Computed example of a mutant assay.
Amino acid sequence: MGRFLPRRFLVVLGIATLAGAALATNYSLWINGRTGGGVAGNYADFTYWGPGSTAAGVNKKAVNWDGYNRISDQNYLIRNALDCYCTGPNWCYVAVHSAGNLMIGYTLSMYGGSARYKKNATPGSDGTCANSDGTTQTGWNIKWVDVAAGAAGGSELANAGDWALSEPLVADLKTATARAMYDHNNTRGKMFYLWAGAKGTAYSFVLPGQDDEAIAYHSAGGISGSGGGSYCNPSDWLCNDLTLGTAAAEGGKAKWTNHSVVFRDTSEAYNHYTNGNWQGTVGLVRTDMVNFAK
């Protein structure tokens, strides 16, 4: 964590100084992955993650989507939340899990340069907020994105049909589809901090390199390219290392722009699942949000 504390401190300090006069409020938005669980538009429903009473960053909000339908079909729910809490004087920290990574990446790339009405951060029952003053801004006020077990590069489990093929989302999670869905390098200047788990067991024969039972390192580690490669911890001599930070992986393959690996699971202790109690790499991201999203 200490590697990027100075950068984050300066970002927070600068924003607080500039926006203080406007009574800015900071929010922590949590975007779920596949299977969903929370009620769409209910920003207090943390069913997907774990107990809602658990600390998870300043003014935490659950940005729920169904985790079943395609990214493009459900994306309006993410835009609604970003409009509500991340416009005008207000700023957001964003945390995502699994397919939530695909969702926020798609949102920023496809809509992050659009005009957004500034909202009043008081959502109605449908999760939308009213305009605050009738003016607009370009994109959203986002400080950074924390990513647990990111699926922006897709999963070979979707390729192989290990997940229910009747789920529209599974089509999006195929590696070729996920990687071609939007420009992953276009984060609108926002940093994506990545946590990659490696406690893979049952599906290791399907997922290349190190994995957390659902997502391989090539995706969780933000490795660029049209297809997934095989990346591992330094102790594994059978494939190239997933490097920390923004540096290219061993073998020279670059990470997507503004993607930095904060955690690589060298002890192979963290799997993909929250288990309804903020577990897996989500638990590590939650701790980071508590420490830095203030």
Rank of each mutant, 00 (worst) to 15 (best):
A16K: 12
A16C: 09
A16H: 12
T17N: 09
L18E: 11
A19C: 04
A19N: 01
A21N: 13
A21Y: 13
A21V: 14
A22T: 14
A22G: 11
L23Y: 13
L23K: 12
T25K: 13
T25S: 11
T25F: 09
N26K: 11
N26T: 14
N26D: 14
N26E: 15
Y27F: 12
Y27A: 07
Y27L: 00
Y27C: 01
S28P: 08
S28H: 13
L29E: 08
L29I: 09
W30D: 03
W30Y: 12
W30R: 10
W30C: 10
I31V: 15
I31T: 08
I31L: 14
I31F: 13
N32G: 07
N32Q: 13
N32M: 04
G33P: 01
R34Y: 10
R34A: 13
R34E: 11
R34V: 09
G36L: 12
G36A: 00
G37L: 05
G38L: 10
V39Q: 09
V39E: 11
V39T: 15
A40W: 03
A40V: 15
G41M: 07
G41P: 04
G41L: 06
N42W: 06
N42V: 06
N42S: 15
Y43H: 11
Y43F: 15
A44K: 09
A44F: 06
A44V: 07
A44S: 15
D45I: 03
D45Y: 01
D45K: 01
F46N: 09
F46H: 08
F46L: 09
T47F: 11
Y48T: 02
Y48H: 07
Y48I: 00
W49K: 00
G50T: 10
G50S: 05
G50K: 00
P51G: 15
P51V: 09
G52E: 01
S53L: 09
T54V: 12
T54I: 02
A55P: 11
A56G: 09
A56Y: 01
G57I: 04
G57S: 10
G57A: 06
G57E: 02
V58Y: 05
V58T: 13
V58Q: 10
N59Q: 12
N59T: 11
N59S: 13
N59A: 14
K60I: 04
K60A: 13
K61T: 05
K61Q: 08
K61Y: 11
A62D: 08
A62W: 06
V63N: 00
N64D: 02
W65H: 10
D66N: 15
